[in-house]
């Protein structure tokens, strides 16, 4: 480590020369702005601006938005209440209460599964930690609301959201491993992951 000495820029020769430089630069910039504005006004070029919320926005497939819980084929929650997401969560926003499942083969399931979304930092570590692919971060990004709204998402809300309108395949086939683990996961399965 050391100090790098940089020469001071030479002082402008005179005020006029400096002012000229500024003015021409601004003019050059404005020229480009005007050109694009005119092109788009005359519909010669497509505008990148979306008229959100009337127009829907598209995000990358890997976008980490609002959480949802996947389901078994019979509609029950896949989550086995192993607490690994709660353990991994840096914001400590996941609360789980485990219980004995009436079905002998399932044994353990979450009686309560709650996410305090105001604390969530959308890091996606819960999704990474899950051994049974039960929690995922979905494509929903609109989470604005008012103080009176519920900011703790319950298991029921996370499990089946009518507003997703079936847009997300949150039902997972039993014993279907994550594609990265099980390369035989079909294209069909991959397609159904995220759709807007």
């Amino acid at each position: 480590m050391g100090i790098i000495r940089v020469n001071r820029p030479a002082a402008d020769r005179n005020a006029f020369e400096a002012a000229w430089g500024y003015v021409t630069s601004i003019a050059k910039g404005m020229q480009l702005t005007m050109k694009i504005m005119l092109k788009q006004l005359l519909k010669l070029e497509k505008s990148e601006t979306l008229e959100w919320p009337e127009q829907p926005a598209t995000y990358s497939e890997r976008f980490k938005g609002k959480h949802f819980l996947t389901q078994r084929e019979d509609g029950q929650v896949r989550c086995t209440a192993c607490f690994l997401c709660a353990t991994a969560c840096p914001a400590e926003c996941i609360f789980i209460e485990a219980g004995e499942h009436p079905d002998h083969r399932i044994e353990k399931y979450p009686v309560r599964f709650e996410i305090d979304i105001l604390r969530c930092v959308f890091c996606g570590l819960c999704e990474e930690a899950c051994p049974v692919d039960a929690i995922r971060l979905g494509p929903e990004y609109v989470m604005a609301g008012s103080a009176g709204d519920k900011w703790v998402y319950t298991k029921e809300y996370l499990l089946a959201r009518p507003q997703l309108q079936g847009g997300i395949a949150s039902i997972k086939v039993e014993n279907d491993k994550h594609p990265a683990i099980n390369k035989i996961a079909s294209v069909e399965n991959n397609k159904s992951v995220v759709r807007h």
Binding site: T80, A81, C82, L84, K108, P131, V132
Partner: peptide, 8 residues
Amino acid sequence: DCPICDQA
């Protein structure tokens, strides 16, 4: 069984 095993 580790996810559902209390011994984990």
